[in-house]
Write a protein that binds this DNA or RNA. Structure first.
Lengths: 192, 192
DNA sequence: CCCATGTGAGACATTCACGTCTCACCACGG
DNA sequence: CCGTGGTGAGACGTGAATGTCTCACATGGG
């Protein structure tokens, strides 16, 4: 009986398609369904069998991005240890999803209401809570709002992902550049 | 003889259309030519008389953005005084163009070759030179490359502009949030 | 007064991506 | 051996945005 419905092969293919689409759309956010299909090595018909339409594909990518971010937040253990170290762990865990995140970050400036705000809001809240914890512990300055620090982190990750794609920043420097600018800024610290 | 060609009224209108389009496209980067025309208070036909097509409009916006950035760089006097102060002046002068800049920054992740790279490259070089000057004077840390600092500045300005548009950051805090994060980072400085 | 210029409104063809459909093919299991 | 399910290729209709065109109107100067 091969009426397995959503068999294992389907699931694997779906994930593979999603990854390919993420990689392509990161570079060319207006890519055609045809290009997405070709990038995944399947035909447009099969792509349509997996995702009803372009909207469905983008929403699936959004879900994937939210999932990966939540996993990254979990793995980064934001509640443990100094907040600065938590930020370092966060950026490290977030790096694999940086490209997808950059695409979604640019996409969300568009659609005012159709995005899955619940998921993003939860992520925002968790990251903002980390920055607030750092402020309460005296580790972070209090004249920059947690909301702005969260926004800036997204922006820097997107900028970093694009800079790496364009070859303006080396892949191995991605984490360092973002974390160091985010935490320490451009000014040289006084030697302690 | 009213064959004045590019008369004064045309020029004024053209600039007004450009500003309106910039304001609209900052919020909705996929706005229709019809919407752009309506936003400028003119008809689509007249819009087409000013700009041959959508590409021409975007390229005109790009030129406008480059112009405004160059003016801002001039006004900021990047060569004078401490580099940190120059960065503050730069962000202050750049704020009026932040929305347009955010739109163009997102747009340039697309079109790989059709953008006016010469203009942007000149701006990049001037800003990178500022960061390099700060490094040479010992004011800025040397473990963050000028190219990354330049990229990060663009990213933070875009993030700031979007955050202001969405109401997540107050307009009056725009400069402060960007400059302070850019220069000082999130970590609290030791009291000197 | 008349004419020229710029404009708005709208019709029109074109392009492009999308979504749906059909059909042939291939691998797989019964 | 044959049927079934998933796939690729491609045709087809649709809708949206674009670019071009014409025509009527208003304003302003000669």
């Amino acid at each position: 009986m091969s009426h397995m419905g959503y068999g294992c092969l389907m699931a694997l293919d779906r994930d593979h398609v999603l990854r390919s689409a993420a990689a392509l759309l990161t570079r060319k956010s207006t890519a055609t369904m045809d290009e997405v299909a070709k990038a995944a090595g399947i035909s447009r018909a099969t792509l349509h069998r997996h995702f009803a339409g372009r909207d469905a594909l983008v929403r699936a990518l959004e879900s994937l991005g939210i999932e990966e971010c939540e996993s990254a937040l979990d793995a980064a253990r934001l509640d443990e240890g100094p907040a600065g170290d938590a930020v370092r762990r966060l950026v490290r865990e977030l790096e694999p999803a940086a490209g997808l995140l950059a695409f979604l970050y640019g996409e969300n400036q568009l659609f005012e209401g159709e995005s899955q705000n619940e998921g993003w809001a939860r992520l925002d809240a968790r990251i903002a809570a980390l920055f607030r914890r750092g402020q309460d512990s005296g580790e972070f300055r209090i004249d920059l709002t947690p909301a702005w620090l969260t926004e800036a982190l997204y922006g820097l990750i997107a900028s970093g992902a694009w800079a790496v794609l364009d070859g303006r920043v080396a892949t191995k420097d991605f984490q360092f550049m973002i974390v160091e600018l985010m935490l320490g800024g451009a000014l040289r610290r006084e030697e302690p």
